[in-house]
Design a binder for these strands. Structure first.
Lengths: 336, 336
DNA sequence: AAAATTTGTGCAATCGTTCCCAAGAAGCCG
DNA sequence: CGGCTTCTTGGGAACGATTGCACAAATTTT
């Protein structure tokens, strides 16, 4: 059994009381210099670390924040997590990462667990399955500080940060149009997700602007954001089997972009000759791909940083915060 | 402020004592059925969750395990983490993930923090910089259950799990030889890392078996495992600038493999015509790449699962465990 | 009906830490 | 030398949950 040293151990060894030791270590003015030195040196020697559980219990906060994302294997999220950690560590907070794998049930469990584990706040990006946000609303109403990023709900009033999804999809679609395509499909995630709605809007606007009529058959939703390869494959096949086959696809997600490329490669459909692609992705290996795919890259690291700053502001604010920001950061289009 | 309900809240509301409420919730035999029902219903209504900090303090364990990896963005690690979580959640344990970004200092800080946070055990894969394992040894000697996976130390006696790195590198190198190459270089991570040593051994053996003389100039170490692109670039450039240029590279790491491809593409060196590649990688998009690279894939998920099972066995064992396993799982070669 | 047993509940200590309050020692002034 | 701060230090109550022990009420036994 691993039993780290406690204040009492130091107190006993030095013939002091725990209160004195505690004060000495916290460098309070009321403790004499020589007692402090005595305590400091001994604590150093036995490598004393305060028990964070006892502290959390006493202080009613844990100096840790919970993160809920769909998957760390997703480049967007792993980059965002790096941004989150960079700020959190700086401010002395710890980060607990949980994955939903796009499952609503898993999201409920994770959120519940993080809350009961008394994290001081939550950074959440909704799962693709999540249509009902009652579990989050419940916590939020009871005062749990919460910031949403990337995939945000519209019925919870707090800080939110997103990439400019509309503009990103608009740019991607416009790029496809400008390279001579007219029959542009849209492959996207579940229809209730904020990112899907915004990206669909950007796609639609680009078509409108160039007087291209929107073809409903060209819009394909993958309810699990491409988590299951079959889902993507079926959607792509449906597009390819249309009598009026699209000549380009604007893809609204990292996983979907990769999945789509895989399907096209498997079917030996030539990109971009037969079909051109542009999609959201934060992968850093797209330029190594055989088939070129223009990509919309989200400022993931920066979004993680900003979300964390916002959350810490909520956590550390002495007064209830009533004014909430809805920050939107521009995406970048990489033409390939 | 978020203030979850406590036992006392229930006790006050129901006119009972906290002990009665506690016993009722734990379904003890000594509490009457109607009191139990009363308590259950009320707890349900106000959504009572026991405070885990109080529990950890009392029980001296946290039902959570700490994970130390270099980067979650690395496919090998994100897959391993999925394996870890699958077992841990099943057994009611929580998982706290930390990243070292291949930094020794960060590793020390993370390990220290996890220990002080009273995790019940640790799953560790060493950072590329880590040559000295005193920080881990210290904890281990004091009874912290610990299992190493992938990058293991040789001076800490506990359960360990690795891929068969020697065989993997042997197979990769043999494959390069069989496709007609003779001048095979080896691009690898820092020289003290267990995986580097084992993979180098596999590489050497394959050369020996085919009577190819080992050329020391062909072996290039990247001390940070390719964390910094310049590092990889320089190593590859050095190989390409040799008067007796290699015609193939056996690459000992995910990040290095990707980095190497990037450099070659940038320099417009044709793969596999000018130089053939085979490398360790768990990326699932290698077959989308323009340049083919044969890959050695580690059973990441399975390794994560096994490591977690081993750790839980250590944690939950009533008697000190003295017999340790050193499990080695075979890799898979994907020829491209 | 008195004694013994069972049943249901509460008190208080514990885990490690902080912090309010009190108290002892030392120094200083008159 | 008594009375006064000032400086250190210790005692003890929290924080939330569990649990051995005690004790009352209800039930059974003699």
């Amino acid at each position: 059994m691993f039993e780290p040293p406690t204040l009492k151990d130091i107190a006993n060894a030095l013939g002091l009381s725990t209160s004195t030791v505690s004060r000495a270590l916290r460098d309070t003015y009321e403790i004499s210099a020589k007692t402090k030195k005595l305590v400091f040196d001994y604590a150093e020697k036995i490598n004393y670390q305060p028990n964070p559980n006892a502290l959390s219990l006493k202080e009613r906060r844990s100096k840790s924040i919970g993160v809920v994302v769909s998957e760390v294997a997703n480049h967007y999220f792993s980059q965002a997590i790096n941004g989150i950690e960079s700020i959190a560590y700086d401010k002395g907070y710890h980060v607990i990462i949980t994955q939903t794998h796009e499952s609503y049930d898993r999201e409920k469990i994770n959120v519940q667990h993080l809350a009961s584990r008394s994290v001081d706040g939550l950074l959440v990006s909704l799962s693709a399955e999540t249509a009902d946000t009652a579990h989050l609303k419940y916590l939020h109403e009871r005062g749990m500080p919460m910031v949403f990023f990337d995939r945000i709900p519209n019925d919870i009033h707090t800080h939110k940060i997103t990439a400019n999804n509309e503009q990103g999809a608009f740019n991607a679609t416009t790029h496809l149009i400008q390279s001579g395509r007219r029959k542009i499909a849209h492959l996207t995630s579940s229809d209730h997700l904020s990112i899907s709605i915004e990206r669909l809007r950007g796609y639609t606007e680009a078509l409108n602007k160039h007087d291209i009529k929107l073809n409903p058959d060209y819009i394909k939703h993958c309810p699990h954001g491409g988590m299951f390869p079959e889902e993507t494959e079926q959607a792509v096949l449906e597009l390819l089997n249309l009598k009026d086959k699209p000549d380009a696809i604007c893809i609204a997600g990292d996983r979907l972009s990769i999945g789509c490329l895989e399907v096209l490669k498997k079917l030996n459909v030539k990109v971009p000759k037969q079909i051109a692609l542009a999609g959201f992705s934060n992968s850093d290996v797209l330029n190594l791909f055989e088939y070129p795919i223009s990509s919309v890259r989200q400022p993931a690291f920066e979004m993680g940083e900003t979300a964390t700053e916002m959350l810490l502001q909520l956590i550390e604010s002495k007064y209830p915060v009533t004014e909430f920001h809805n920050k939107v950061i521009d995406t970048q289009l990489f033409v390939r």
